[in-house]
Design a protein around this nucleic acid. Structure first.
Length: 651
DNA sequence: TAAAATGCATGT
DNA sequence: CATGCATTTTAC
């Protein structure tokens, strides 16, 4: 008898079904292998959750139809993780399995999987010597202890090498390791470090942009236990690592860690869950720090892995802030590029010293939102602290008055809690300075750009050049940048998103970390008010301080991660039915509805509700939502309600 | 998709 | 209150 999870999207069928194993398939079928079965009269794909010898099913079992191969692609540990993630995000196991298992390619299965010929020694602890508990962490990993750390990497840190050293420590103790990074550029750097520090075939790389054939081959290297170290982008969070001893997520604030397919799991949360289930070590790492990571520290789940202030001072560039009323450069060319004189001067000196200069400009297209006209703090709803915006549709009477984007209450009057200003203004929308403008301000300098439209550069050489990049696309400069200019800060800080502060610091620090230390002439100029806490955190290079402060603020305002929030989106009718069936957990707060901006390929009016519960009720909320989804799918409710837990954007 | 379960009218 | 037929439910 085989217990099979069938690949159907219906919530009320999210459980295994028992099938008889015909004699001729008995030799092939294995726990964790793919099968085809007759279900509801049709042939569907499925995975064998487990093999057993008895069934609770009263009727007579259907036989398995086909077993394409006995390759066990779903390990018991990953099966447990899939179930846990489905429950946590109010999704189904088959949805999560689609993320966890790459499509099968028969050719890749037939190829032999190369194995490493030796285990490595533990890594040289010198790389982590700058962090107080660094060498101790490596030791714990080598001994297979479930150490947990939030690692804040120093500016200029060769973090890919450090992360591979963590893997090597685990591997030296015969334990597997899994590292998830946000994008291909980071993965390239990580892979290069692995090639230097790990035995051949001891690691495998899972990336979305490989061909299906190669993806499956790389996956099999892990599932067959040949490669015990897996490096990858977010889909690798489910990789079947043999004897998992360590999970690592790099730059967990990057929104690429959030999967955009249902049930929208986040790599950090999944890996933390995985560390719980497998009782293995975990490292949440980055140059900056998220409020979620701060919560892991505050709750005692993880220790901080940080350098002390003296070490930090030696590594960090000199950071200076310009207020809003900065003096524009006297040079007319620089003025046309709207460069403040200090920024102009700093860049000019770095170029003269023969070093490259990084200019970070935000991507265009941020959603305009409302801020206090006096102090520019994002304007928040007096009732639920959601962001204020101008409704896309005129209200009754045709007036377009500001309203909360969460609970839709109009904000007839505004009283800024920070400065008691009463006027609102639209936040600055990001508008990139063009490379040509900068070129005019620095005649003779070569200008290179790196961004999603112009193409992302991985590295730039050490000579003098202006490098214009959007956040996340900053190339690494050989020997480090002489200076960085962080421009258009209000476009970042003024965003309505509740993560705007943390996200701004993350982007600034990721750019500033590529600059040489101050002792080596490295300067960073940020065009923002020095009094702003995010700017203070950058100047003092103290991401832990900002993250702790963010966490405290969010607790005060009832935001995640202090609370858990579910977003429910659909037609007004479907939402009404859904809410009618929903039994809200204790202390739940229902906000909305607000109109949803239409998504491509969707028609009809759509709305959104938010359900907010205390963090302790997160499980109960997910359970209640699952229950409603189950009832609706059993009733064949035609209109789908999109349920998303802990959505990244709460605009 | 098709078998099983349920609902319902009809005739004794 | 059996019987036959239509409709609904289930999904192994």
């Amino acid at each position: 008898m085989a217990r099979v999870v069938v690949d159907v999207p219906l919530a009320h069928l999210d459980r295994p079904f028992d099938y008889a194993v015909p004699d001729q398939l008995a030799d092939t079928v294995q726990a964790g292998c793919r099968v085809r079965v007759r279900f509801h009269g049709r042939l569907v794909d499925g995975v064998v959750w487990e093999l057993g010898d008895s069934t609770d099913f009263a009727g007579s079992l259907q036989p398995l139809s086909h077993v394409p191969s006995g390759e066990p692609v779903l390990t018991p540990q990953v099966a447990q993780l899939v179930r846990t993630v489905a429950d946590r995000y109010a999704g189904t196991a088959s949805d999560v399995l689609r993320l966890a298992l790459p499509p099968r390619r028969a050719a890749a299965e037939k190829r032999p999987t190369p194995t490493p010929d030796h285990l490595p020694d533990p890594p040289d602890p010198a790389g982590f010597a700058r962090y107080q508990a660094g060498p101790a962490l490596l030791e714990a990993l080598a001994e297979g202890r479930p150490a947990r750390a939030v690692w804040t990497a120093l500016p200029g840190e060769d973090w890919p090498t450090r992360l591979v050293e963590l893997c090597r420590a685990a591997l030296s103790g015969r334990r597997g390791a899994l590292v998830v990074v946000p994008d291909g550029k980071d993965l390239d750097r990580l892979t290069a470090a692995a090639a230097r520090l790990l035995p051949a075939h001891a690691y495998t790389v899972l990336r979305a942009d490989d061909s299906p054939e190669k993806r499956y081959r790389q996956f099999l290297a892990a599932s067959r236990g040949a490669a015990q170290v897996v490096l990858g982008t977010r889909a690798a969070m489910f990789a079947p690592v043999r004897d998992l001893g360590l999970v690592v997520v790099w730059d967990d604030g990057d929104d690429l860690h959030s999967d955009e397919r249902a049930p929208y799991p986040h790599a950090r949360d999944v890996l933390v869950q995985r560390a719980w289930l497998d009782n293995c070590a975990a490292v949440v790492a980055g140059t900056s720090r998220t409020a979620e990571a701060a919560l892991l520290v505050e709750s005692g789940w993880a220790h901080e892995l940080v350098a002390d202030r003296a070490v930090l001072r030696a590594a960090a560039p000199r950071v200076r802030a310009l207020g809003e009323d900065f003096e524009l450069a006297r040079d007319p060319a620089a003025r046309s590029a709207r460069l403040p004189s200090l920024a102009h001067e700093t860049a000019r000196r770095a170029l003269a010293a023969g070093t490259p200069v990084l200019v970070q400009v935000p991507r265009r297209g941020y959603v305009p939102s409302l801020a206090c006209a006096r102090c520019r703090a994002p304007a928040r709803c007096a009732h639920c602290a959601g962001p204020l915006g101008i409704s896309p549709r005129p209200g009754p009477g045709g007036a377009r008055i500001p309203a909360c984007r969460w609970c839709a209450r109009p904000a007839a009057t505004f009283d800024c809690p920070h400065c008691h200003g009463t006027k609102l203004r639209a936040s600055v929308v990001g508008e990139s300075r063009t490379a040509e403008e900068l070129a005019r301000a620095f005649p003779g300098a070569s200008v290179r750009t790196s961004g999603s439209t112009s193409g992302v550069l991985a590295t730039v050489p050490s000579g003098p050049a202006l490098v214009v990049a959007t956040p996340g696309a900053e190339p690494v400069a050989e020997g480090g940048y002489g200076a960085a200019l962080l421009l258009d800060s209000w476009a970042l800080l003024g965003r309505a998103d509740l993560r705007a502060g943390e996200e701004t610091l993350r982007r600034w620090m990721n750019a500033a970390a590529l600059v040489r230390p101050a002792s080596d002439g490295g300067h960073v100029i940020v065009a923002a008010d020095a009094a702003h806490p995010v700017v203070q955190a950058l100047v003092r290079w103290d991401p832990g301080w900002l993250a702790a402060r963010e966490l405290a603020d969010r607790r005060e305002l009832g935001f995640p991660p202090a609370t858990r929030i579910a977003s429910l989106a659909g037609s007004p009718e479907a939402l009404a039915e859904f809410l009618d069936a929903l039994r809200l957990p204790d202390g739940a707060d229902l906000l909305g509805p607000v109109p949803e901006r239409p998504r491509p390929g969707q028609e009809g009016e759509r709305e959104r509700f938010l359900v907010r519960v205390p963090r302790s009720e997160g499980g109960a909320l997910a359970h209640a939502l699952t229950e409603v989804q189950g009832v609706r799918s059993a009733k064949k409710a035609l209109e789908h309600v999109r349920v998303q837990l802990d959505p990244l954007e709460l605009v």
